[in-house]
Amino acid sequence: MLLNQFLLLSAVLFSIGVYGVLARRNGVLLLMSIELILNAVNINLVAFAAFTDTIGGEVFALFVIAVAAAEVGVGLAMVLLLYRSSRTIDLTTVDRLRG
């Protein structure tokens, strides 16, 4: 298999995730798009691990999975806090710090 087929798939998923982060207004959907980006990065790491026949990329993919789990936990807690304080998770309405 070619290395590039995995890297290009990863690039497509990454770009779709970037689109989701920029276009979505729902806080939960924004976090989902971030998960998509992190998974695209993981495909890259594992593809390069297979390309160089080393194990480091897979270990770092494991670390990325752990960090993603932590990120989702804190992110969803923040979304819940936002919902409790303002009854909405529309991110375009969150501008209380705007001068």
């Binding site: 298999m1 070619l2 290395l3 590039n4 890297l7 290009l8 690039a11 497509v12 990454f14 770009s15 970037v18 593809a47 297979a50 390309f51 160089t52 026949d53």
Partner: peptide
């Protein structure tokens, strides 16, 4: 973003095969 990444990847790893 996709265009820039595709151009860079195609130029860098044109026919690289997985070696595992």
């Amino acid at each position: 973003v996709f265009g820039v990444m595709t151009a860079a990847l195609v130029e860098s790893f044109a026919d690289a095969e997985l070696s595992r």
